[in-house]
C-alpha cells in the first residue's frame, strides 16, 4: 500500500509567540519549531500500514525551508521519500489554497491512501484532509481511531462526539484524517536518523506545480484575545497561594 502522509511544521508548544502589530502571522525569529503533533499520529499510522501491507510512505510538507525538518523526522522514523513544497508565504494561503498546492503535489505520486492529522496546532483550520479528498476526487473519512484494510477496502472506526463511535467502510484510494491518540508514535532511532540522510527530498514550488490560488478568505490580524472573565491571580509562596485559594473557595465562591 503506497501512502502519502501530509506533515506540517508548527511553532513548538511552549514557544513564546510575538505578534507584530497588525500582522497576520507571528514573528518567526527566536522560536523553536516541531512536527505538528496530530500529524505525528498520521505518520505513525502510515508507517504501521506500510509495515503490515508493504509499499512506501511519502511525506509531503509545505512551508519555508525550515519545514524540511518535519520531512526529515518522517524519513528518520521510516518514510521512504519526502516532497517539500517550498513556500515562504504559506501563511497567506487559505485552507483551500494550501489544499490545492498539496493536491497538485500528491497527484504526481502513485498512491492508495492519503493521511493527514486532524488539524494543525498553529492555524487550526482542520480542513486539509477533507479538501484534499474533494480536490483529488476521492472518498474520505475523518477523526479515525482504527484502520482495517482488506481487499481494496477500508473499515474505519470514526470518533463521534460525546463518547460515540461509528464504523464506516470505503474503497481505496481514499483520504483519511487521523484522530490524535489512535496509536503511540515511535521515536526515531539513531540508525533511522543516519539512514534518513541518504533519502530523497524533492523540492517543488507553487509555480512548478502550476497552482494559481485565489484566496476565499483573509486573516486581517491576529492578537492576544481580550479576557472575558476577570481572573483573580493569587500570589505568594505555594503555601501562601494555596491558603488564599482555600479561603476564597470557602468564603467568596462558597463552593467548599
Amino acid at each position: 500500500m503506497n501512502i502519502v502522509v501530509c506533515v506540517k511544521q508548527v511553532p513548538a508548544k511552549d514557544a513564546p509567540l510575538a505578534i507584530p502589530e497588525g500582522a497576520a502571522w507571528i514573528r518567526e525569529t527566536d522560536i523553536g519549531f516541531e512536527l505538528n503533533e496530530p500529524d505525528g499520529y498520521a505518520l505513525e499510522e502510515a508507517l504501521r500500514l506500510k509495515e503490515k501491507h508493504g509499499g512506501e510512505v511519502v511525506a509531503v510538507s509545505m512551508g519555508p525551508e525550515r519545514s524540511k525538518q518535519a520531512i526529515k523526522e518522517a524519513l528518520a522514523k521510516g518514510a521512504e521519500r519526502g516532497v517539500h513544497i517550498s513556500d515562504d508565504k504559506f501563511y497567506e494561503l487559505d485552507p483551500l489554497g494550501s489544499a490545492r498546492c498539496l493536491a497538485a503535489a500528491i497527484k504526481r505520486e502513485k498512491f492508495d491512501l492519503v493521511l493527514t492529522g486532524l488539524q494543525s496546532d498553529d492555524h487550526g483550520f482542520g480542513q486539509t484532509g477533507v479538501l484534499l479528498a474533494e480536490l483529488l476526487g476521492l472518498p474520505h473519512a475523518t477523526i479515525i481511531m482504527q484502520i482495517d484494510a482488506a481487499d481494496g477496502r477500508l473499515k474505519l472506526k470514526r470518533e463521534l462526539e460525546a463518547g460515540w463511535f461509528q464504523w464506516v467502510e470505503l474503497p481505496l484510494p481514499a483520504v483519511l484524517s487521523i484522530q490524535s491518540g489512535i496509536n503511540k508514535p515511535r521515536y526515531a532511532t539513531l540508525k533511522g536518523i543516519m539512514a534518513a540522510k541518504k533519502k530523497e527530498i524533492a523540492t517543488l514550488t507553487r509555480a512548478e506545480l502550476g497552482v494559481t490560488v485565489s484566496p476565499t478568505q483573509r486573516i486581517e490580524r491576529i492578537y492576544v484575545p481580550k479576557k472575558t472573565k476577570k481572573t483573580e491571580i493569587l500570589t505568594g509562596t505555594a503555601k501562601e497561594a494555596a491558603a488564599k485559594l482555600v479561603e476564597k473557595l470557602k468564603h467568596e465562591a462558597r463552593v467548599l
Binding site: G124, Q217, I222
Partner: peptide
C-alpha cells in the same frame, strides 16, 4: 462581517474576512 476564530490552540485570536464571490 468579520469572523473571529482562535489560532495557536487558543493562545491567539484572528479576525478573518471573506474574499471573492459568495456564497461564503
Amino acid at each position: 462581517l468579520v469572523f473571529v476564530r482562535q489560532m495557536f490552540q487558543g493562545k491567539t485570536a484572528a479576525d478573518v474576512i471573506f474574499q471573492g464571490d459568495a456564497p461564503w
